[in-house]
C-alpha cells in the first residue's frame, strides 16, 4: 500500500520534473529567439553590440540606438503579441470546444479592424490608448454577432458552423473596412494595417500593451482548471462544480481583450491562435493550466521568428508578417479541417 503510494508520488514527480524541464527549455528558446531577432535584420549587428546595448547603453552610438529604439520594442512587441494571439486561440478552442477557433478565422480581428479603420477616418489624431479601447469594442461586437448567429441555428453551436459563419463575417467586415478606406482615401495608411506588422511598435505602445496582455494571460492561467473541465463537455464540468456560464463569459472576454488589443497594435495576424494551441496540447496534454502558458511561450517564438523571416528574406524590404504566419497556418488548418470533417 505504502509502496504503491510512494511510487505514484515518484511518477508524479517525474512528470513534474519533465514539465519543468520542458518549460525552462522553451523559455530559453524564447530568449534565444529574441537575441537572434535583435541581432539580425536589414543592418547586421554583432552579438557584442547587442550585449553592450543591454548592459552598457551608450546613446551616442548609432548601432546601439538602432537596437534600443527600433529592434527592442519590435522584438518584445512580437513576443507579447504572439503570446496574446496564441492564448486567445487556446481559450477559445477550450471554451467552444472548437479545434478550428482562432481570432483571425472567427472574424474577431475583422471587427477590431473595422473600428480601427473608422477611427482613422473620423479621429485621425486619436491617442493610442483610446484606439486600443475602440479596437477591443469592435472585437467584442463582432464576437457577439458571430456567437449569436451560430447559436441561432437548430443544430446549435457546432464547430463547423461557427467557423464558416466566422469566415464569412470576417470577409464581410474586411470588405467594409476596405470600403471605409476607399471612401475616406485612407488606402495607403490602412494597407500597412491589413498586412499586419510589428514594425510600427514603439516603447510608448509597449507601455500600454504589456501590462494589459500579461494581466490577461495570467487571468487565463487561473481560468485554466475550469477551462480544462469545460473542454471535456458542459455537463461534466457542471457536475464537477464549475460555474460554466461564468467561466465561459470571463474566458471569452479575456480572449477578445487579447485579440482586440493586439489588432490595435499590429493589424490582423491570423493563424497564430490556431496553430500554437494544438502544438502545446501535443506537448503538455489536455490541462489548460499548462496549455495556456505553453501557448504564450510558443506563440511568442512563432511571431518573433515570423517577423525575423519577414525582415531577412528580402532586405531591406520587409515581407508582411501575415504572409509568414499564413504559410504555416494554411496547411495546418487543412490538416485540422480534414480531421474535423472526418466526424461528419
Amino acid at each position: 500500500m505504502l509502496n504503491c503510494f510512494s511510487s505514484r508520488i515518484l511518477k508524479m514527480n517525474a512528470r513534474n520534473y519533465l514539465m519543468i524541464a520542458l518549460f525552462s527549455s522553451i523559455i530559453l528558446g524564447v530568449l534565444l529567439c529574441m537575441v537572434l531577432a535583435v541581432t539580425f535584420g536589414a543592418k547586421q549587428l554583432t552579438f557584442h553590440t547587442v550585449w553592450s546595448a543591454i548592459f552598457d547603453y551608450n546613446p551616442t552610438v548609432t548601432q546601439q540606438q538602432i537596437i534600443h529604439e527600433l529592434r527592442f520594442p519590435r522584438v518584445i512587441g512580437a513576443a507579447v503579441i504572439g503570446a496574446a494571439f496564441a492564448v486567445s486561440g487556446a481559450l477559445m478552442q477550450g471554451i467552444t470546444r472548437n479545434p478550428l477557433a482562432d481570432a483571425g478565422i472567427l472574424g474577431i480581428n475583422g471587427g477590431a479592424m473595422l473600428v480601427v479603420a473608422l477611427c482613422f477616418a473620423f479621429f485621425p489624431s486619436i491617442p493610442y490608448s483610446l484606439l486600443m479601447v475602440f479596437s477591443f469594442v469592435g472585437a467584442l461586437i463582432s464576437t457577439l454577432l458571430i456567437f449569436l448567429i451560430s447559436s441561432a441555428a437548430p443544430g446549435g453551436l457546432t464547430p463547423i458552423k461557427l467557423t464558416i459563419s466566422g469566415a464569412v463575417v470576417a470577409a464581410f467586415l474586411h470588405s467594409l473596412s476596405t470600403g471605409v478606406a476607399i471612401y475616406f482615401n485612407l488606402s495607403q495608411d490602412l494597407a500597412f494595417w491589413y498586412a499586419g506588422g510589428v514594425a510600427g511598435i514603439k516603447w510608448a505602445h509597449l507601455k500600454v500593451l504589456l501590462p494589459i496582455i500579461l494581466a490577461t494571460i495570467i487571468l487565463g492561467i487561473f481560468l485554466g482548471r475550469s477551462v480544462s473541465l469545460l473542454s471535456l463537455g458542459e455537463d461534466t464540468a457542471a457536475n464537477l462544480g464549475v460555474k460554466t456560464n461564468r467561466v465561459r463569459l470571463v474566458g471569452i472576454i479575456a480572449a477578445v481583450i487579447l485579440a482586440g488589443v493586439s489588432v490595435s497594435a499590429v493589424g490582423s495576424i491570423g493563424f497564430v491562435g490556431l496553430v500554437i494551441p494544438h502544438i502545446s496540447r501535443k506537448l503538455v496534454g489536455g490541462n489548460y493550466q499548462l496549455i495556456i502558458p505553453m501557448s504564450a511561450l510558443l506563440g511568442a517564438i512563432l511571431l518573433i521568428l515570423a517577423d525575423l523571416g519577414a525582415r531577412i528574406v528580402d532586405p531591406p524590404r520587409e515581407l508582411a508578417i501575415g504572409i509568414m504566419t499564413a504559410l504555416v497556418g494554411v496547411p495546418f488548418f487543412l490538416y485540422i479541417a480534414r480531421k474535423v470533417g472526418r466526424g461528419l
Binding site: 508582411a320 499564413a326 504559410l327 479541417a337 461528419l344
Partner: peptide
C-alpha cells in the same frame, strides 16, 4: 464532402490571399 468543401475553400482562399498580398505589396 459538401461541408469539407467549404472549409477547404476557406483555407485555400486564405493561402492564395497571402500570396496575392505578397505580390501586391511589391
Amino acid at each position: 464532402l459538401p461541408i469539407r468543401l467549404i472549409l477547404v475553400g476557406i483555407a485555400i482562399s486564405a493561402g492564395f490571399s497571402a500570396i496575392t498580398l505578397f505580390f501586391s505589396l511589391r
